[in-house]
């Protein structure tokens, strides 16, 4: 059994239960008070395909504009902001789910070619393709006489 190439990790500020309330990171750190927003850990699938690993994440309500995907130091992070776009007069009568943003990160192995990662968003499902890095052929090093 080889090591999985993408290991989900609980994001640092989020406890392992997967959900917490925290201020929205980055961007909105303006003078206005930052509203508390709920952050969820989205369910994911990871499978092997011919081109590499494919990661699917359920992100209902996330748009291409509100989705941020980042790779830094072998860590892939997804952050999707959700705008419920409800009319202001809307009054909640019955609730089975809460609105919130989505955050999850993964540790990528060296087998993933970071430069060729692609992603698409389709009906609220994010698909990230993590191509396998092509193994470089062993190279002979010539030893010269001084």
């Amino acid at each position: 059994m080889s090591e999985p190439e993408a290991t989900p990790v609980p994001p640092a500020p989020v406890p392992p239960t997967g959900m917490t309330t925290q201020p929205v990171p980055a961007q909105s750190q303006s003078t206005a008070p930052v509203p508390e927003r709920t952050v969820f850990m989205p369910p994911i699938d990871i499978y092997d395909s011919d081109e590499g690993l494919v990661l699917l994440a359920d992100l209902p309500g996330v748009t291409i504009e509100s989705l941020e995907i980042q790779v830094q130091d072998n860590r892939l992070t997804l952050f999707g902001r959700v705008n419920p776009a409800l009319p202001t007069e809307a009054r909640l009568l019955h609730q089975e789910f809460e609105w919130g943003d989505f955050l999850r990160s993964f540790i990528l192995s060296d087998e993933v070619d970071h430069d060729r990662i692609t992603a698409k968003l389709n009906h609220g499902v994010l698909e990230v393709v993590l191509p396998r890095a092509t193994k470089t052929a062993p190279r002979r090093i010539q030893v010269n006489k001084e």
Binding site: L86, E89, A90, R91, L93, H94, E96
Partner: peptide, 12 residues
């Protein structure tokens, strides 16, 4: 999961 809202002219 379903949420239901009431608006002036409709339920959502």
């Amino acid at each position: 999961p379903v949420n239901v809202y009431e608006l002036d002219e409709e339920f959502l």
